[in-house]
């Protein structure tokens, strides 16, 4: 047992800090999202074969989908939309949530009351239901998707960062900074934020995973990314018939969703255990 753990220790890259490892994995997905489609052998909408749900072959490495399109190319495009939409929405939710969460530790009590009740309000609506309503009302453009996902996950980021910041705001070094006359922005950015980097990174990662899962759910229900665009959830939905034939077209996008979310989750777990 102990021999095994030392073996694992030797395998680890010692030069990477936990934060670098998370950013590294995330960077890989981002590069794949941006550059992946350039390597796609076919256009995503191009029907290349008369055989639907074709198995893996040298012509189309990952087989074809329900219309005979190249699954590999479509997967590369799907990763692009899933990762980019979720990245933008996470940036939105965490940006707003964290800023508001830290700021309300320093502002008058009524601001926290207003912000806190608003966040509780959003939090009390089931996220999928909320997304369905917003999309039904405002349409399913990519911007609407990004903003919807962003708003839904803002309260979580707000709660977490506020809890973290409250603990830090009570520290004597903050008292000293306030007594020195430092501005609120300096205290938020330089005094408080660096001390919550670790837990916040984990939180941002989790928000990203939630966003991936919710977007995939929405797309699976037909409310997310619309054709001709494609994301991982819609790939699963349109090829769901292939389940009967044991086709890769439905299994592979599912596996990619799993690898994306579980992978980030595992790396995050590694950081928190440190």
């Amino acid at each position: 047992m102990s021999g095994m753990t030392t073996g694992f220790r030797a395998l680890r890259l010692p030069s990477l800090t936990p934060a670098q490892r998370v950013m590294g994995l995330f960077g890989f997905w981002l590069v794949l999202a941006v550059c992946g489609p350039f390597f796609a052998p076919y256009a995503p909408g191009q029907i290349i074969d008369t055989e639907v749900f074709a198995p893996l072959s040298h012509r189309h490495w990952l087989g074809t989908d329900y219309l005979g399109r190249d699954l590999g190319s479509r997967l590369l495009y799907a990763v692009r939309y899933t990762v980019l939409i979720c990245t933008l929405s996470t940036a939105f939710s965490c940006g707003c949530g964290i800023l508001l969460g830290i700021a309300t530790t320093a502002t008058p009590a009524w601001m926290e009351q207003v912000a806190g009740r608003l966040m509780d309000g959003i939090l009390s609506i089931p996220s999928l239901l909320c997304a369905l309503l917003v999309i039904a009302a405002f349409g399913d453009s990519l911007l609407a998707l990004v903003l919807t996902l962003g708003v839904i996950y803002t309260p979580g980021a707000y709660r977490t960062s506020r809890a973290l910041a409250l603990r830090i705001a009570r520290m004597d070094y903050i008292t000293v900074a306030v007594a020195r006359g430092e501005g609120a922005l300096f205290i938020i950015w330089r005094e408080i934020l660096p001390n919550m980097r670790g837990p916040l990174l984990a939180d941002v990662g989790l928000r990203f995973i939630y966003a991936v899962l919710l977007l995939s759910n929405l797309s699976f229900l037909g409310l997310g990314v619309q054709p001709p665009l494609v994301d991982l959830g819609s790939l699963v939905r349109e090829n769901v018939l292939g389940l009967v034939y044991g086709s890769g077209a439905v299994i592979l996008p599912t596996i990619v969703i799993g690898v994306l979310t579980v992978g980030i989750n595992l790396v995050l777990d590694g950081t928190s255990r440190r």
Partner: peptide, 19 residues
């Protein structure tokens, strides 16, 4: 503010651990 400084109690909490 400059002429009046405070030295707070708990040595573990007075210095920002990130600095």
């Amino acid at each position: 503010r400059r002429r009046l400084q405070i030295v707070a109690q708990n040595a573990d909490l007075v210095l920002n651990p990130a600095w």
